[in-house]
Design a protein around this nucleic acid. Structure first.
Length: 316
DNA sequence: AACCAGGAAACCG
DNA sequence: CGGTTTCATGGT
């Protein structure tokens, strides 16, 4: 088990860190999820490597995240190569902490396998995707933007909107011919007028919501730390829903992927409904009460159940 | 070319 | 309240 302050990595060479991973971990399952859209702009999958940039203390850290260097551990370990030079120790620590949170390397999910393994609908899915962990969106602002942008539109268009937002207001770093994108800060979006987002084809309501969220975060009225400190996740959900433009689906999606509440449940999620429909071999989507009943069986792992079911959607 | 998309708010009886 | 309509654009 992890203890605070304990190092979660060792150096294999000057710029290659090797991360400890939990048992029952399979990097390839994470890769498959990360690689599900061609339009993803905030990371890039090439072969069995993920390229990603972070802004750590105002300076970019460019990383190639890949497999273990020991053959027998391939797929069960994670390595991080720092492409633009090995940062000072504190920034390395923050980068590694980001990866561990992103990939959810510090949660014991054996309880999910126990509960879900018994379930007729979820059991086969767990069997198929065992070793997959819930890929997060550690930045609250990015998570909220992605979720609000994705309301009531198909995923392909959601990725297009995100890409336009990043290209218009984020930043771009080119290193050895490879392009890295950074998501805009809340401050950058807070100063915009809704028209500037409408030009990117956000709806008026989404444009206003994104700017509203950016301002709340800039003012410190909304923060990841603040939401986590509420302790009771129902309070965090209430706080999120109190923002105009954030409803139950968005709140639960963000709790699932950013606050890492393993029991958050985006009940109205169309992807979840389609995954359930297909697992049941039906033509009709399940009713909301049906989805609620299934969710009750999966508690307190409803977020993990949802994420595993999402993964089945990429199977033709 | 109609129908739907990883919803939310406003509206209505 | 609980159901219905509107928003708004692009993918398939």
């Amino acid at each position: 088990m992890r203890s605070n302050g304990e190092r979660q990595y060792r150096w294999a060479d000057e710029a290659l860190a090797v991360l400890d991973t939990p048992e029952d971990y399979h990097f390839d399952e994470a890769l498959a999820y990360l690689n599900r859209s061609e339009s993803e702009c905030l990371h890039q999958v090439e072969g069995r490597t993920v390229y990603k940039a972070l802004d750590i203390g105002g300076e970019p850290v460019l990383m190639a995240i890949g497999m273990g260097i020991v053959e027998e551990a391939q797929g069960r370990t994670v390595t991080v190569r720092f492409l633009n030079g090995r940062p000072e120790e504190e920034r390395v620590g923050r980068s590694i902490a980001f990866i561990r949170e992103w990939m959810d390397l510090d949660t014991d999910i054996s309880g999910f396998y126990r509960i879900g393994g018994q379930d007729p609908l979820l059991g086969p899915v767990i069997e198929r995707y065992r070793g997959l962990r819930l890929i997060g969106v550690p930045s609250l602002f990015e998570a909220l933007c992605w979720t609000v942008a994705g309301q009531q539109i198909n995923l392909a268009f959601a990725y297009t909107l995100k890409k336009r937002l990043v290209e218009a207001f984020g930043s771009r770093i080119v290193h050895e011919g490879r392009e890295f994108m950074l998501f805009p800060s809340a401050e950058q979006i807070a100063s915009l007028q809704p028209e500037e987002l409408r030009e990117l084809k956000f709806t008026g309501s989404k444009a206003e919501t994104l700017i509203r969220i950016a301002r709340l975060i800039q003012e410190g009225e909304l923060s990841k730390e603040g939401l986590l400190e509420l302790g009771d996740f129902r309070e965090a959900e209430k706080k999120l829903i109190s923002v105009r433009g954030i409803g139950p689906w968005t709140a639960n999606y963000v709790m699932m992927r950013c606050l890492r509440n393993r029991d958050a449940f985006p009940l109205a999620d169309v992807g979840l409904h389609n995954a359930i429909r297909r697992r049941l071999g039906r033509t009709e989507k399940p009713s909301l009460p049906e989805v609620e009943d299934m969710g009750a069986r999966w508690a307190p792992w409803r977020a993990y159940a949802t994420f595993y079911l999402w993964s089945t959607l990429t199977e033709s």
